[in-house]
């Protein structure tokens, strides 16, 4: 064990979570699932639950993990949340000025619990929502940090209605 490695591991062991996640030339975005800080990256065609929010509106909830974007306690971001089905937009929402938090410089930035919604006019009825059950859609998500750096991912997932 080299002293350098020991020193490098100390922030993790001490829970050093107050750092800043710094930008890089090739930022990336991952989508995943989990609560309480857990993050399980989506696999291709991962099943995601279609949730009907209280008092109306339906969508899928995703955790976003960024690498190479500026993230920290005071860092804001914009996130474009698009759902594409059969080549058509099934929902498009812009999330603005949301804190892009740094889970850890080694892990990356995080925005947990973001909802990518389906268009209310197209997917407002029970029949329309039921028709989404089992459909493969693409979550097309772009995060832009406060410095204007952007990263995009297009993740194919399978919508599951009910659980």
């Amino acid at each position: 064990m080299r002293p350098l490695i020991v020193l490098a591991s100390l922030p993790l062991l001490a829970g050093c979570a107050q750092g800043l996640c710094t930008p890089s030339d090739d930022p990336t975005v991952l989508l995943g699932n989990g609560v309480g800080g857990a993050f399980e990256p989506y696999e291709d065609l991962q099943q995601v639950t279609l949730e009907s929010a209280p008092q109306g509106g339906s969508g899928v909830r995703v955790n976003i993990e960024t690498h190479g974007l500026l993230a920290g306690d005071d860092q804001l971001s914009d996130t474009q949340l698009d759902i594409i089905m059969d080549g058509e937009l099934a929902g498009t929402f812009l999330q603005e000025n949301t804190r892009l938090l740094c889970a850890d410089p080694e892990i990356g930035g995080r925005i947990d619990g973001t909802v990518a919604g389906f268009d209310k006019d197209e997917y407002g009825s029970n029949d329309a929502l039921l028709a989404l059950n089992g459909q493969v859609v693409t979550l097309d998500i772009t995060v832009t940090d406060e410095d204007g750096n952007s990263a995009n991912t297009q993740q194919d997932v399978t919508v599951v209605y009910g659980n």
């Binding site: 929010a53 509106g57 909830r61 949340l81 999330q95 603005e96 000025n97 990518a116 209310k120 006019d121």
Partner: peptide, 26 residues
């Protein structure tokens, strides 16, 4: 909001954040 286009005024001030389980703009 979130009742669909027919119920949406032309120039609202929108909260463009995920909030209370809703997609931005609700």
């Amino acid at each position: 909001a979130g009742f669909g286009d027919a119920w949406t005024p032309p120039n609202p001030e929108v909260i463009n954040e995920t909030l209370y389980g809703h997609a931005p703009g609700f």
